[in-house]
Design a protein around this nucleic acid. Sequence first.
DNA 1: ATGTAC
Length: 470
Amino acid sequence: MSELKITGKQLRALGYPQGLVVRAAIDVVTQHYADATAEEVEMILTKVLADPAAYTADAVWVAVATALLPEEGPEKIALRDTPVDYAVFGAGFIEEGAIKQLNNAVRLPVAVAGALMPDAHQGYGLPIGGVLAAENAVIPYGVGVDIGCRMCLSILDLPVDTLVTKDAQYQKALKYQTKFGAGAEWKRNDTDAVLERDEFKEIQILRNLQQKAAGQLGTSGSGNHFVEWGIVSITDINNEWNLVPGDYVALLSHSGSRGLGAQVAGHYTRLAKELCVLPKEAQHLAYLDLSTEAGQEYWLAMNLAGDYASACHHLIHKRLIAEMGATLLARVENHHNFAWKEVHHGKELIVHRKGATPAGKGVLGIIPGSMTAPGFIVRGKGESTSLHSASHGAGRQMSRTKAIASITNDEMRKMLQDNGVTLIGGGLDEAPGAYKDIHTVMAAQSDLVEVVGQFQPKMVRMADGGPAED
DNA sequence: ATGTAC
């Protein structure tokens, strides 16, 4: 990307106040003044600051001008006194903070319905494990930072005993056909139709991101993302693929839209906060009206990031499956950080699932456990009180910092050994003990999903917490 | 979650 034309310090030297306007101005300059000289940039910034009212109808400068005119800017939007009632699954073990966050969310004027999943924990804006249906509005932080973060499972024709007899080959595939770490990019030239999409040309924020997206195609990132080999046990004789119930080698991946989605999320969250001023306790739930240009843009960019996340998984699976010389028997895939247009209560609504698995009737999904606990292939029951949703995993019971402070390396090693799991990379913050018991979580959502099969991890690859690996 | 952009 082009170098930064303007810094916060320079903006303050020009007389810009502190706050959201600084970031908005940096965004505009980066996106629209890439070829301008420093003098030209300084001149336009000075003009906008001197007379922001003259720029509130300017497509490029509207966010900056609006932020400079607090009195003329959008009025503070009040939360409703009467919240929408919502269902909580697993109420006995969900932390207070998550419930408080959803209590705020269902008081938004655009809120129509909500639900809290049994893996819920406190997040930013909407809790992780939170579901919120809104009318004609989308909340960038209701989707989350990692837009389109998803699970993808491939069931293969390889004999299960090869996980032992060809252990080295499986491990080698994980090491050389995946790429982990913040900012990690491949030096190879894989491509995908998603990189040719018109949105990369038509939406300003995306223009500078196409190249980054191309480099990061087929990478996994960091945090709780993983790629793992394991054994799928199909238990449902009426499974969708006519697979004989029993054990199969399978590949499971968890990752999202990388830098592309992160930049989109950051940009539209800032824009939403400027256009939709809410009381402090709900400020991160700022929403974009889907009838506006900003709302439409976010919707398109979010969908592009979702398709990109899917393409990343497909490339990872294609490479690993080819390396093992396997044939694909079945695949399950689902987003769990996203917003969908769905009809509930006879009305088209925007359903935000931030760490929640779509579970409409007959809809398949994957709910992972931990690196040692099983994950589940599930089929939605279409329960209306959960807004056709289920948990997206076991959910954390310890923050990253708490896990690092209270779990020892020896404990984690023993846990992996006892469960016959090989870990490549990874850290204490992702230790199995940092997560809730998946069986408790599954029991709390038996009305939401039925189990088609389960997945037991055997070889797990994660980021090791350090810089990007080669 | 993200190459950490005041």
